[in-house]
Write a protein that binds this DNA or RNA. Structure first.
Lengths: 337, 337
DNA sequence: CTGAAAGCGCTAACAC
DNA sequence: GTGTTAGCGCTTTCAG
């Protein structure tokens, strides 16, 4: 039974075949300078002994690690885990490794992760900002230095970089419009940290939706969750406050927030009996099992991941500095209950 | 505004302070050979210019990457994502980076991932076998060679290595005992690939549970899903077959399988009206929202991750080859509906 | 077409 | 206590 792979080096091959390491290196990389025969010889022998390049050595030399860093708030999140799947599908094809890290919505951890990735010679980053992040100067510096970062979902408007988002306004509008057309008059809005791009855009869509139904916007019906629903406590608190406002419908602006809201309602029989109609962003695959039933705004999460990864790898592999950055905006899908 | 970090090297520091690179290196690593003054000087300057070691160079030299590989079938799985959180909590403290990859229950992809990690100089691996895996010889070779691998959840009985699992028999027994005590007479069992450790152990607990209620074991009431519920099709198929057997209760042996079963039932009004009582393994945080209500067996997923990571890092950092391997077995929690 | 040699950034004998 | 040197495995000028 042969070992799966021994730690052979280029030198071993060179010695065995009476060639120089450089020739072997070139042969393995299919350089035009090497004769077909030598190539065949080298490749055959390399296969026989199951030679693998040492990626660490290669990275050191080439200053390229063939690794992409992903930074999200949490992987145990339907939306993010689907985005990651999309990223991986592309990375896998193009022979990039993917490294995932979580911020848990902490700006400090986010910065640590970014620095860690940067100093670990990641070739580029894919990230959605944490809900706590306000200071993005360091990211700005990094991108200006030429370090490739593609932002998705929660993107910084101030930074010039490739971005992939969805039409948040439209997604929000459709949800609120549905609630409004269902006869709801006091439609609350449960959302994430106030300063985030997605929060602003969805709020804007919410307002348009109200307007379409001739409803007035009332700031008291909007509750922000600083940690984007990462902590159930903040959701419970926000829900209690919204209920005091006698809402009859609610538009919820995030995966964790939507399930968190339902959990909060379920814990309290009185809340449950109010029959508040729910429309929320979520990419959960088990929404149809939920009681009460809810309407949902679904994001093309896998596609977002794919497009973001394509942009990133494109940027990494392009010789020149990008002069124009793309901002891809995808559509959402509204599914009435 | 200063840059977050320039690419300074030890040489730069050495030059600036009129020292040799080795002195700087030693000072930074707090070597006993270096005078306190020099250390202070070096550290202060390093901080000033925001110096970071190049981990690639260090890895090449030390043959250690401070990275752990995690291999699971899917991260969009409540159980696995919680395990990963546990692993990260330890890795983060001990300054290891964590790299995650998915097999999607494919033995081929699993092998590719393992080889990839191995050749990428991961210091060790944490893995749960894919449902498709039967040939584990290559893993055997790797561990025998001294490459640290800690297995969790789905573990290979034949390989000598640290393992972290739960008391699958007891978990299954409690679930089936509950169903039986609720008066169910024909209790089906929906489970994963037949050869997996968890499948065998949970089947054994299922049998004991039946016995406790004076019920006979009927192989026709057991349905295996080769891909562990990764594909809804195979679940639908299995559910249809079980229903034909007139079951009045069901014990389900996995996270995806449990939600998949509920989705299958929900799609079909007739199925739903049979009111089959459900007890299943799942670590979903939104079980309480599900209709029909179900009883669950919960695994201490976070703890599993922590313990596995501790074992792995311990093995990596121990000078000698482990002579005795630990098998940690944790308890489950049964939550009646 | 192939080889010799330098060097990526870091560490660690081995000197002094 | 500090410096010199070699070398981790690889790629890539530069020579031939």
């Amino acid at each position: 039974m042969t070992m799966p792979f021994e730690n052979y080096t280029i030198k071993d091959i060179a010695k065995a075949l009476n060639l120089s390491p450089s020739t072997v290196s070139r042969a393995l990389r299919d350089s035009y300078e090497i004769s077909t025969e030598t190539k065949k010889l080298v490749i055959a022998y390399a296969e026989k002994i199951n030679y693998r390049v040492n990626p660490i050595a290669r990275s050191l030399k080439e200053r390229k690690s063939y690794s992409l860093g992903i930074i999200v708030s949490e992987i145990a999140n339907n939306f993010f885990s689907q985005v990651i799947d999309g990223i991986e599908s592309i990375a896998y094809d193009k022979n990039y490794q993917v490294v995932i890290s979580q911020t848990r919505e902490s700006a400090d951890r986010e910065r640590l992760n970014v620095e860690h990735f940067y100093s670990r010679s990641m070739d580029g980053l894919l990230m959605a900002l944490s809900s706590e992040t306000t200071d993005i100067q360091y990211l700005q510096n990094l991108t200006e230095k030429g370090f490739p970062i593609v932002f998705f979902d929660r993107v910084p408007s101030e930074i010039q970089a490739h971005k992939v988002t969805i039409d948040n306004r439209m997604g929000a509008y459709q949800a609120v419009d549905y609630l409004q057309k269902s006869g709801k008059k006091r439609i609350g809005h449960l959302t994430s940290a106030e300063h985030l791009s997605i929060t602003k855009e969805r709020l804007s869509g919410y307002k348009t939706g109200l307007l379409a139904g001739g409803l007035d916007f009332d700031p008291k019906l909007v509750k922000y969750c600083k940690y984007g629903g990462l902590h159930q406590d903040e959701i419970n608190q926000a829900v209690a406050e919204l209920i005091e406002q006698d809402i009859d419908g609610i538009f919820i602006s995030g995966d964790k927030l939507t399930t968190g809201y339902l959990l909060a309602i379920k814990q309290n029989q009185e809340y449950l009996q109010l029959n508040i109609e729910v429309a929320g962003f979520t990419n959960s695959k088990v929404v149809s099992l939920f009681t009460p039933e809810i309407s949902t705004v679904r994001q093309p999460a896998f596609e977002i991941g794919k497009r973001a990864a394509e942009l990133l790898i494109g940027q990494i592999e392009s010789k020149h500095r990008e002069e124009a950055y793309e901002h891809i905006i995808l559509g959402t899908e509204f599914i009435a209950k």
